[in-house]
Design a protein around this nucleic acid. Structure first.
Lengths: 155, 155
DNA sequence: TATAAAAAACCATGGTATCCCAAATTAGTT
DNA sequence: AACTAATTTGGGATACCATGGTTTTTTATA
């Protein structure tokens, strides 16, 4: 499955197109759907994205464990899948971000792509600066509280 | 098998025709039956749909899990399979929703297609807004109870 | 068989997204 | 520093999609 690293800020043109960072594009290129999938996260004012495999796994896992008619499963499916969009690349590697998500995340002239491993986030350039400060401060005190990783080593 | 994402609201014209979102159409195009199958769900005032493969798989699973003469199996089969309709597309990609289901779901001037992975729902535009609020609230408390899946957590 | 009603095919249109080509910027090399 | 390659950005032309209406075919009814 795709893996996303690093941070990139690209322009949003007046048609609403944004270049997806080249390294993100090559990360999803081997996926079933050659593009990205974006959705609205529960708690943060940003756009979240991943490759299609990520969402298919989520969906199939939910259906598989509970059958297609479990209320808990359906609510999570509705929350994430219903608000998600498949975005395919144009020949230059750009996508069109859905207007609803752009508004929600406050992405207007610039979009900041933030690699977070199996998924990534897209922020309005200004909102991200503040968010990053928060996260750095929080991480310093959260890290010692994490349980040990399975293999004994650390990432 | 077909995979449905995102939410689209389309108009129902006075003849009862609705455009099925293009991405849903291409999702079912490789299926055995080149159209959608709709049925009345158990608990929700909406129409549910999927591709033919989904229903076949549901049927196989019912028979497999319960045997072909189990009362539970029969009631589920009767509820879903017996009331299901195959809808094929007109040359422009529209279908006619069965009147009975439209009434049941309160679908009149607009139909909201909600992608939920392997299946989707069709709601009256107004009823869906309320439902989505419920689902988001419910999902927030249901999500932590779900088992983790590969990739390191959900939104 | 004739007629009405319904369903299906056909055609036309506005709006939007996508493609295609080209320029500008950035990164990497020699 | 100069050159080359890759990536990002911009804009005009094109294709696609949702929608509305008209005509033809089918089905049901008298």
């Amino acid at each position: 499955m795709a893996f996303f690293l690093s941070t990139f800020t690209n322009k949003v043109d007046k048609k609403g197109r944004v270049s997806v960072p080249a390294s993100f594009r090559s990360a999803v290129s081997s996926s079933h759907f050659p593009g990205i999938v974006v959705y609205r996260p529960f708690n943060l004012p940003c756009i979240e994205g991943a490759d299609m495999t990520f969402l298919e796994q989520l969906s199939d896992r939910l259906y598989g464990d509970f059958g297609p008619f479990n209320p808990d499963q359906m609510s999570v499916a509705t929350a994430i899948l219903a608000g998600a969009s498949q975005l395919s690349f144009d020949p230059e590697g750009r996508v069109m971000l859905p207007g609803e998500l752009r508004e929600f995340a406050g992405v207007d002239s610039h979009a900041t792509f933030v690699g977070l491993g199996r998924k990534f986030q897209i922020w309005g350039a200004d909102a991200y600066a503040a968010h990053r400060q928060d996260q750095l401060a929080h991480a310093a005190e959260a890290a010692p509280k994490l349980p040990p990783f399975g293999g004994g080593g650390q990432a």
